[in-house]
Design a protein around this nucleic acid. Structure first.
Length: 779
RNA sequence: GCGGGUAUGGCGAAAUGGCAGACGCGCCAGCCUUAGGAGCUGGUGGCCGCAAGGCCGUGGAGGUUCAAAUCCUCCUACCCGCACCA
């Protein structure tokens, strides 16, 4: 019988589905308890899953299969993050309706996800664009609203001119800044330069959770780089709020400073050009035209131009205005300059050229005084000038509305009399109507705004004429709670079944891309905390453990369509089989580091699998002593390596074991079965085929118990003692274990080789590490 | 600029402070075959040497240690995050 991957893989995929091998028992998990193994679900935007997705899914699946065999009831769910700009843009590109395109993509994605051989719980699959799903996304929005975490506000917001919608701060990527290229931020989806627009939008008050989002990081087992990124994004800084009064006026300028101790050195003040106080002081400003011109310029200037100008300071003095330094009552000048940001702190600063580089630069340019005033104690000065110690965060509220079609309509109704009202929960879902003209309008409104049938409605409160919100919510809201839905995917009454949730949440292992560090991975934590506070969840942190997987490149370069080096996994599965592709991907390098895909490499794994297949002919009854040691070493190493996601070294060890087995004539059935089990998470098809078809076992190998190693096989009678002279290895001596130092010394000094190297030298020191090493130090 | 990470053969990589380069690719030699982009066996960091063996070697420069890829200091390059955040 020859190993024929394409034949056996399809067969077992069907059988697994039919037998429900990967369906957990939600009510009564197996002896070791539940294990929720989650991989970030994909968004079906492109032609299909690329090899990078397969890499991530395989890595996650190996972990899940391992946990299942280790006795856990594993939930490894799958779904599609199919709502959102990415899917809609793709539909526009290929000229179909998103609803139709998604159905097509869905089929293709699920086919691919089946063919890679993952142990998914298909009965719990979900799609975010399914009304049965987004009904609860809307419910979540309403809970946010009812709990005071939603507000509308007009302010300058990020606008993508290509996607024709607003974006959250997290969705604006600051790239190319240092490359001298103009660019003040690009749309996370399409790469277009983002501009600022003054618009009224819906926001989620994620900033209320800033402190907890920061503090909880200490307690969760997440990849360090994600924690670092989140800490930076939240950007906590502790300082003081100080008041500067304006001479001959009632007005006061609040400033936030982390250096209250330098207050005596504050020689001027700067307001952001957008600061509201500027208008208030108009009548006193003697150079209003100049001020107004600068403000106009700053407003029209997007970050694009600011960056193009480098960090050269610009600004205009508010002539006629003087502020008073509360520490020494000296009058100081007041300026507006765009190096002060309206959105951070109070939008105003006290400038201390002596202690702040930026202030120094500005002072130099505009010939402002430098003070060498001494530092004072923070607490003292804050008290003296009646200031207040406060904490600032860099984090901004989550802009949640989008002027697009393909998303869950925001479940809010506006009534002229009663104001904004949430849609009554019994009326959910607010279904997204299938409309012909779904393209973004560019009018600051969603295409739904021109669909009267959709927006015309009654006020839930007074029953009068009212208008439905026509914006949809951000895709990241869909994915901010999907992990809660999986175990309750077939539950109709609530977003998630309280009993099942109590049993199955939080997620035990979450694997995904690091690019979501301050996007999805921040939102998902915020939403869990809110749900916890409203009494829906008994945990605050949704994922106990998170690991970021590495990225796959091709022949040393990033994969991209323009380079034509995109690896299509379908071709490789067809040619080599899913098992070979899985193992090759995992063998490339450490899972958390990624690797370089090269076609030649697949051959090594194919050879390996063929040789495993050939072992079939070696099986007999009795255990074979020669391989016991390596076999048990392999159990130990593979177990530890999978736990640490070191799949590449686990596979190396399996290769070493295979070679040893090939050196013996025969092996026992039970030894062979252990080998198959160790290999099963990596190569689920070939192991199942041998397990059931050849060895005639009834039950799936993937439900078998993970092998345990016996330390008695690991202990050896002899040790390889490394003999060094002055740190240089001269000989490796096989000695009985656990000899005394004196015995070892005698043996070592008797060695001809050692004698040669020691000839004429005086031994100064004799270092002995039992069973491992001897180092002789000479004069 | 600040923070985090990485740097090891021709390539992907491996090494609780203790034999650097496991494992795999590629390459070389041999076997097998009508044939090989198949399979098997052996070899494969560099330099010197017929060999035994020796010397050098983990981005660079120092240091700690009996012993450093690993720990410390400084430097260089690349990657990631934040960035005029007061």
């Amino acid at each position: 019988m020859k190993y024929n991957p394409s034949k056996i893989e399809k067969k077992w995929q069907k059988t697994w589905l039919k037998e429900g091998v990967y369906e957990p028992n939600f009510k009564n998990p197996r002896e070791k308890g539940k294990f929720y193994n989650l991989m970030m679900f994909p968004y079906p935007s492109a032609e299909g899953l690329h090899v990078g997705n397969m890499y991530a899914f395989t890595g996650s699946d190996i972990y899940g299969r391992f946990k299942r065999m280790a006795g856990h009831d594993v939930l490894e769910p799958i779904g599609l993050d199919g709502f959102g700009i990415h899917s809609e843009n793709y539909a526009i590109k290929v000229g179909t309706h998103p609803a139709d395109q998604t159905k097509k993509s869905e089929k293709n994605f699920y086919r691919q996800l089946t063919e890679i051989g993952n142990g998914f719980a298909w009965k719990e699959k979900l799609e975010t664009y399914d009304p049965e799903y987004y009904k609860w996304t809307q419910w979540l929005f309403i809970q946010m609203f009812k709990n005071g975490l939603v507000y509308r506000k007009k302010q300058p917001v990020n606008w993508c001119p290509s996607c024709k919608t607003v974006l959250a701060d997290e969705q604006v990527i600051l790239a190319h800044r240092n490359l001298g290229e103009v660019g003040g931020g690009e749309c996370e989806r399409c790469g277009t330069k983002v501009i600022k627009k003054d618009l009224e939008q819906w926001f989620f008050k994620i900033t209320d959770y800033a402190e907890r989002l920061l503090n909880n990081l200490e307690d969760i087992d997440w990849s360090e780089k994600i924690k670092v990124a989140q800490r930076a994004w939240i950007g906590k800084s502790e300082g003081a709020l100080l008041k500067f009064s304006i001479a001959k006026s009632q007005s006061v300028i609040d400033v936030f400073t982390t250096r209250a101790d330098t207050l005596y050195g504050a020689t001027y003040m700067v307001l952001a050009p957008e600061h509201p106080l500027v208008n208030e002081l108009k009548s006193q400003i003697t150079n209003w035209d100049e001020v107004q011109a600068y403000r106009e310029k700053a407003k029209g200037k997007t970050d694009i131009e600011r960056t193009a100008e480098g960090k050269e300071k610009t600004g205009v003095e508010l002539k006629g205005i003087k502020a008073i330094n509360p520490a020494n009552n000296q009058e100081i000048s007041v300026w507006i300059a765009d190096y002060v940001l309206a959105g951070y702190g109070t939008g105003a600063i006290m400038a201390v050229p002596q202690h702040d580089e930026r202030d120094a630069e500005f002072a130099k340019k505009f010939d402002l005084p430098f003070s060498d005033a001494p530092l004072v104690a923070v607490d003292e000065i804050v008290k003296k000038v009646s200031g207040k110690k406060i904490t600032q965060y860099r984090l901004r509220d989550w802009l949640i509305s989008r002027q697009r079609y393909w998303g869950p309509p925001i479940p809010m109704i506006h009534c002229e009399k009663c104001g904004w009202q949430p849609v009554p929960e019994k009326d959910l879902p607010v279904k997204l109507p299938k409309i012909e003209d779904f393209r973004p309008t560019g009018t600051d409104q969603s295409p739904l705004a021109s669909v009267e049938k959709f927006y015309k409605t009654k006020c839930p409160n007074c029953k009068g004429e009212a208008r439905r919100e026509t914006d949809v919510s951000d895709t990241f809201l869909d994915s901010a709670w999907y992990y809660l839905r999986y175990p309750s995917a077939n539950h109709k009454e609530e977003a998630f079944d309280p009993d099942v949730t109590k049993k199955w949440l939080p997620v035990d292992m979450y694997i995904g891309g690091a690019e979501h560090a301050v996007l999805h991975l921040l939102y998902v934590r915020f939403v869990a905390m809110a749900l916890h506070d409203w009494g829906f969840l008994n945990f605050e942190e949704p994922m106990t453990r998170f690991r970021a997987h590495g990225l796959i490149i091709k022949d040393g370069a990033k994969m991209s369509k323009s380079k034509g080096n995109v690896v299509n996994p379908d071709e490789y599965i067809k040619k080599y089989g899913a098992d070979a592709l899985r193992m090759y991907l995992m063998f490339l390098g450490p899972f958390e580091q990624g690797g370089d895909f090269r076609d030649e490499g697949v051959a090594g794994i194919t050879r390996f699998l063929n040789r495993v297949w050939a072992l079939i002919d070696k099986v007999q009854k009795e255990d074979v002593a020669e391989i016991q040691k390596t076999l048990h070493q392999t159990i130990k190493k593979v177990t530890e390596d999978i736990e640490g996601l070191h799949y590449n070294t686990a596979i190396s060890q399996l290769m070493i074991l295979l070679r040893e087995i090939e050196d013996v004539e025969v092996i026992s059935r039970s030894q062979f079965e252990m080998v198959l089990k160790l290999l099963a998470p990596f190569a689920p098809h070939i192991t199942e085929e041998i397990w059931r078809t050849v060895l005639k076992n009834k039950k799936s190998i993937h439900l078998e118990a993970w092998p345990e190693y016996n330390t008695k096989h690991l202990v050896e009678k002899t040790a390889n003692l490394v003999l060094q002279i002055n740190g240089k290895t001269r000989e490796v001596m096989v000695v009985d274990r656990d000899l005394s130092e004196a015995q070892v010394k005698e043996l070592v000094l008797a060695s001809e080789k050692m004698q040669r190297h020691l000839d004429g030298k005086t031994i100064k020191k004799f270092i002995y590490l039992p069973n491992r090493l001897v180092n002789i130090v000479t004069e």
